Lab assay of single mutants.
Amino acid sequence: NQASVVANQLIPISTHLTLVMMRSEVVTPVGIPAEDIPRLVSMQVNRAVPLGTTLMPDMVKGYA
């Protein structure tokens, strides 16, 4: 099972991601792979992401 990136807190819209905001967890459905966490740092979310939500490629500007 592959770990995905999950929000560690509420991430407001247009926030630049930091390591503190993300954790890796095995979830269904599978989202952005956990090994991409370093790549996600300083990218922006294009919507509010609630605590515990799996980050999907379409939620992060410039990821997909």
Rank of each mutant, 00 (worst) to 15 (best):
N1E: 15
N1H: 11
N1D: 15
N1M: 15
Q2W: 10
Q2M: 11
Q2P: 14
Q2H: 11
Q2T: 13
Q2F: 13
A3T: 08
A3M: 09
A3G: 13
A3S: 12
A3C: 10
A3E: 13
A3K: 07
A3N: 08
S4L: 01
S4K: 01
S4H: 01
S4E: 01
V5A: 12
V5N: 01
V5D: 01
V5T: 07
V5P: 00
V5W: 00
V5F: 03
V5K: 01
V6P: 01
V6Q: 03
V6C: 05
V6M: 04
V6N: 01
V6T: 06
V6Y: 00
A7K: 02
A7G: 02
A7S: 12
A7M: 04
A7W: 01
A7N: 01
A7T: 10
N8S: 15
N8Y: 03
N8P: 01
N8R: 10
N8T: 11
N8I: 05
Q9V: 11
Q9C: 09
Q9K: 09
Q9W: 08
Q9T: 14
Q9E: 13
Q9D: 07
L10D: 14
L10S: 15
L10G: 12
I11A: 02
I11P: 00
I11G: 00
I11F: 01
I11E: 00
I11N: 01
I11V: 05
I11L: 08
I11D: 01
P12D: 11
P12I: 04
P12V: 05
P12Q: 07
P12H: 09
P12R: 08
P12G: 08
P12A: 08
P12L: 06
I13G: 09
I13Y: 14
I13A: 14
I13D: 10
I13E: 15
I13P: 11
S14Y: 14
S14H: 15
S14N: 15
S14A: 14
S14Q: 12
S14I: 04
S14E: 14
S14M: 14
S14L: 13
T15H: 05
T15V: 09
T15D: 03
T15K: 06
T15W: 07
H16G: 07
H16I: 14
H16P: 14
H16L: 13
H16K: 13
L17Q: 00
L17V: 01
L17A: 00
L17I: 14
L17W: 00
L17R: 00
L17N: 01
L17G: 01
T18H: 05
T18A: 11
T18V: 06
T18F: 03
T18G: 04
T18C: 05
T18M: 13
T18S: 12
T18D: 08
L19V: 08
L19F: 13
L19D: 06
L19S: 11
V20F: 15
V20Y: 13
V20M: 14
V20A: 14
V20T: 13
M21A: 03
M21S: 03
M21I: 03
M22V: 06
M22S: 02
M22D: 03
M22N: 02
R23Q: 04
R23P: 03
R23M: 06
R23D: 05
R23H: 05
S24E: 14
S24P: 13
S24F: 06
S24Y: 10
S24I: 09
S24H: 08
S24G: 15
S24V: 12
E25M: 11
E25Q: 12
E25Y: 06
E25L: 08
E25R: 06
E25A: 12
E25P: 00
V26E: 15
V26I: 14
V26L: 12
V26H: 12
V26N: 10
V27N: 01
V27R: 10
V27H: 04
V27W: 03
V27I: 07
V27Q: 05
V27M: 07
V27P: 00
T28E: 15
T28K: 07
T28Y: 10
T28H: 11
T28G: 06
T28R: 04
T28Q: 11
T28C: 09
T28F: 11
T28W: 07
P29S: 04
P29N: 05
P29V: 06
P29Y: 04
P29K: 05
P29A: 04
P29H: 05
P29I: 07
P29T: 05
V30I: 14
V30G: 08
V30D: 12
G31M: 02
G31Q: 01
G31P: 01
G31R: 02
G31Y: 02
G31F: 02
G31S: 02
G31H: 01
G31K: 00
G31W: 03
G31V: 03
I32F: 02
I32V: 08
I32Y: 01
I32G: 02
I32C: 05
I32A: 02
I32Q: 01
P33S: 09
P33D: 06
P33K: 08
P33M: 07
P33Y: 06
P33V: 08
P33R: 09
P33E: 05
A34C: 08
A34V: 10
A34N: 06
A34M: 08
A34K: 06
A34Q: 07
A34G: 15
A34T: 10
E35M: 10
E35N: 11
E35F: 10
E35S: 11
E35C: 14
D36L: 09
D36N: 11
D36V: 07
D36R: 08
D36M: 11
D36T: 07
D36S: 10
D36W: 07
I37N: 00
I37D: 00
I37H: 00
I37R: 06
I37T: 08
I37Y: 03
I37Q: 05
I37K: 07
I37S: 03
I37F: 01
I37L: 14
P38A: 11
P38I: 11
P38W: 10
P38V: 09
P38F: 10
P38T: 12
P38R: 08
R39M: 10
R39V: 08
R39E: 06
R39Y: 11
R39P: 02
R39H: 09
R39L: 11
L40N: 00
L40E: 00
L40Q: 00
L40M: 06
L40H: 00
L40Y: 01
V41H: 02
V41P: 01
V41E: 05
V41C: 05
S42F: 13
S42D: 15
S42E: 08
S42A: 14
S42L: 07
S42C: 14
S42P: 00
M43A: 08
M43W: 06
M43V: 04
Q44Y: 08
Q44K: 08
Q44A: 15
Q44R: 10
V45Y: 00
V45D: 02
V45G: 03
V45H: 00
V45M: 05
V45K: 01
V45I: 07
N46Y: 09
N46M: 10
N46Q: 12
N46A: 09
N46D: 11
R47G: 05
R47L: 09
R47S: 14
R47T: 11
R47K: 11
R47Y: 08
R47D: 07
R47I: 11
A48H: 11
A48E: 15
A48W: 09
A48L: 14
A48D: 15
A48S: 15
V49F: 03
V49C: 07
V49P: 02
V49H: 03
V49S: 02
V49I: 12
V49A: 04
P50V: 07
P50E: 09
P50W: 05
P50N: 12
P50L: 13
P50R: 09
L51H: 13
L51K: 13
G52Q: 02
G52R: 04
G52V: 02
G52C: 04
G52L: 04
G52Y: 05
G52H: 08
G52F: 05
G52K: 00
G52P: 00
G52A: 07
T53H: 13
T53G: 11
T53M: 09
T54V: 10
T54E: 02
T54G: 01
T54I: 08
T54A: 06
L55Q: 00
L55A: 02
L55M: 12
L55H: 01
L55F: 14
M56P: 01
M56Q: 12
M56Y: 10
P57H: 08
P57A: 09
P57K: 06
P57R: 07
P57L: 04
P57S: 08
D58E: 12
D58S: 11
D58Y: 11
D58N: 14
D58A: 09
D58C: 15
M59C: 06
M59N: 05
M59K: 01
M59E: 01
M59S: 06
M59H: 09
V60Q: 00
V60Y: 01
V60E: 03
V60D: 02
V60C: 03
K61Q: 15
K61T: 15
K61I: 14
K61S: 13
K61Y: 13
K61A: 14
G62P: 04
G62D: 14
G62M: 08
G62I: 04
Y63N: 04
Y63T: 03
Y63C: 05
Y63S: 03
Y63K: 03
Y63D: 03
A64S: 13
A64T: 15
A64Q: 15
A64D: 15
A64F: 06
A64K: 13
A64L: 14
A64W: 05
